[in-house]
Design a protein around this nucleic acid. Structure first.
Length: 613
RNA sequence: CGGGGAGUGGCUCAGCCUGGUAGAGCACCUGGUUCGGGACCAGGGGGUCGGAGGUUCAAAUCCUCUCUCCCCGACCA
């Protein structure tokens, strides 16, 4: 049993001025956390106690499918070189040197370390499958930490890695994680949604994110009102309603039309009395990525054509061209590739690079295009180097409007595939709310959400690059296939607080709350009240409940306010009614208040909190 | 990195424009009265005004530089 008078629970009447979202305000006010620097927090007694309970649930469930490890937080450069990510990750990785000048980094994630163990130790298919996990601190030097614990530079992650002999094995390991994650989040009392996700920088084929809807979230999820379709914005697709194509004019060949001063899609549509859906939007990027050595930025032009009312989903595009960044082309670059001015650029005249060269980059020894500015000789010598991406929504369309690469002119009668060629047709647009669900056709909705868990099928990315090999049953050397699975511990608590709060504070489910019950004597100067509260707290404690006795010599109002603030799901108020043998039990979430008998209080909570017994 | 905002006692803030040597509420300590929704009275402790430099007889206040934090964007598992 814990006594509040002896604990350090520094509650605040007012939220710190720099706290913006509910979870940040309340976790600070409730004395769970304190900030040390941007995106770096100390966890105090109450916070750590809650995290420990969350981690216990995670551990308990993970132990049903895997084995717990504990890996180093400091890694040598070499393993990150081996996977190719030392250069790829960039400024988000904390890097340091040891006294000998050797490069080290703080663990950003642990694929490399786990794969290093696997490549050194795993020899035979008989050792597979393996699922290894840990609960460990991760360090990520975020460009913009924000919203309290929602986006930080140091946090705790449960990360797991699976090694299987083949894809069918990976399917099994993946499914195990999927199911265990659902059990974990259910036990934490979270309302969440599992969405299809893009595997992004981690690489790999299949991926799901476990998302909690909240306005504080930074991710967008698309979900169907009717069926269970749900996807991350970067992955979501929709069924588009058919569009009426324009009738061809004249001989049906592209026809130059004068559109003076009408560069923007909306202006062109109005001027020509067409719908933006009949216009082709051109978006020109320079795709960028670091060279193998990490010392140079490689660039290549990528031009996207899509329906006039659609917008590019840059994440989809990045994955398609295997780039790490996109920047809009500058005016002189537009001139170079289109030989036309911004606002009037279009596909006709471009020479798309062949599909088999998509995503292929100039080798690292070559100077960047930027450095060759202003001549751009590297590219002008080789116009095939332009990747032309056609959004899928334009496939099969005809007689569209597009920029003519000539000031104040557009083309009519333009049919993709006929009047211009492209490198590849792919889904590179963003879904918007209200479009039809790809499964059932019902309207899609878009919500902000927090990502609390993520599971990936990594494939061979790390095992291959780092050289993990085992012998199969035929004695043939094969590369194990991997999966990687993460849960953000702090985000579980943060998401729960975002889901369960009111003007006075928040409440946690008993299984993750720092205490299940707070016993509040209204006046410790009253012997009868004080001793009854002591007795109740002691009996509940003996019965195995996590009890906090608020034995502070404070006025009742102060104690009630604090009790409401700090996330404890049940309050037992010991006051005047002790003379009648009665106390009150208040459920924080509903504010529901019930009298209970002092003598039967243990049984009362047994029924409430331990229904299985 | 671009744009915006803010740094004054533990928390929330006033004072800055118009320079004169720092204040309020809450919190904290002592004593007393109180005790069912953030009490009251009396006394008290605590601040290099983010830092450095400059202007001035005099700087929280004016000027220059700088650091930090927050928000929006870019970016991001």
């Amino acid at each position: 049993m814990h006594r509040w008078s002896e604990l350090f629970i520094p509650t605040l009447r007012e939220a710190p001025a720099d706290a913006e979202v509910a979870s940040h305000k309340f976790l600070v006010r409730a004395g769970y956390i304190r900030q040390l620097a941007a995106g770096i927090y100390s966890y105090l007694f109450m916070g750590q106690r809650s995290f420990n309970k969350i981690m216990a649930i995670v551990r308990h469930e993970m132990d049903t499918i895997g084995q717990e490890f504990f890996l180093p937080a400091i890694h040598p450069r070499e393993i990150w070189e081996a996977s190719g990510r030392w250069a790829l990750i960039g400024d988000n990785m904390f890097r340091l040197k040891d006294r000998k000048g050797a490069d080290l980094c703080l663990g950003f994630t642990h694929e490399e370390v786990m794969t290093d163990i696997a490549r050194k130790e795993l020899r035979s298919y008989k050792q597979l499958p393996q699922i290894w996990y840990q609960i460990q601190t991760k360090f990520r030097d975020e460009p913009r930490p924000k919203s309290g614990l929602l986006r930080v530079r140091q946090f705790t992650m449960k990360d797991a890695y699976s090694f299987d002999i083949d894809a069918a094995g990976l399917d099994v390991s993946y499914k195990k994680h999927y199911d265990v994650y659902c059990r974990i989040f259910d036990r934490c009392g979270l309302k969440y949604r599992v969405v299809e996700a893009h595997s992004g920088a981690m690489g790999g084929s299949q991926s799901h994110e476990f998302m909690v809807r909240t306005l504080a979230g930074e991710d967008l999820i698309v979900s169907c009102e009717k069926c269970n379709y749900a996807a991350n914005m970067e992955k979501a697709t929709s069924k588009l309603a058919p569009v009426d194509d324009l009738k061809p004019e004249g001989d049906g060949k592209p026809l130059l039309v004068h559109t003076p001063g009408k560069g923007a899609i909306a202006d062109v549509a109005e001027f020509l009395k067409i719908s933006p859906q009949q216009d082709i939007k051109t978006v020109a990027y320079m795709a960028q990525k670091l060279s193998e050595g990490g010392d140079k930025t490689l660039e290549q032009p990528v031009i996207v054509f899509l329906r006039g009312d659609h917008s590019v989903n840059e994440t989809k595009l990045l994955a398609l061209v295997k780039a790490s960044q996109l920047r809009p082309m500058q005016a002189e670059e537009l001139e170079l590739f289109f030989q036309g001015p911004g606002g009037f650029i279009g596909p006709i005249g471009l020479v798309p690079r062949p599909a088999d060269l998509l995503g292929l980059w100039p080798d690292s020894s070559r100077e960047t295009i930027k450095q060759r500015h202003p001549q751009f000789s590297a590219v002008t010598e080789n116009p095939r180097n332009v990747s032309v991406v056609l959004d899928e929504a334009l496939v099969g369309r005809s007689n569209m409007i597009c920029g003519a690469n000539k000031l104040d002119y557009h083309f009519r009668n333009v049919t993709p595939g006929k009047d211009f060629q492209y490198t590849v047709a792919a889904d590179v647009r963003s879904v918007t709310a209200g479009e039809a669900c790809p499964n059932c056709g019902a309207p899609l909705r878009i919500d902000t959400a927090v990502e609390i868990g993520h599971i990936f099928k990594l494939g061979y990315k790390y095992s291959e690059s780092m050289g993990a090999r085992v012998l199969d049953r035929n004695g043939k050397e094969v590369t194990p296939i991997m999966g990687s699975y993460g849960i953000g511990i702090e985000r579980i608590l943060t998401a729960i607080v975002e889901q369960n709060n009111d003007e006075n504070g928040f409440w946690l489910p008993p299984q993750v709350a720092p205490f299940e019950i707070v016993v509040v004597p209204t006046n410790v100067a009253d012997d009868k009240v004080r001793s009854t509260a002591e007795d109740i707290a002691r009996r509940l404690d003996s019965a195995g409940f996590d009890v906090l006795l608020d034995d502070r010599d404070e006025r009742p109002g102060v104690k009630f306010k604090d009790a409401d603030l700090v996330g404890i799901p049940f309050r037992v108020t010991v006051g005047k009614k002790v003379t009648e043998g009665t106390i009150e039990v208040v459920q924080r979430s509903t504010r529901e208040m019930r009298d209970a008998s002092i003598s039967a209080i243990t049984e009362y909570f047994e029924k409430l909190l331990r229904p299985a017994h």
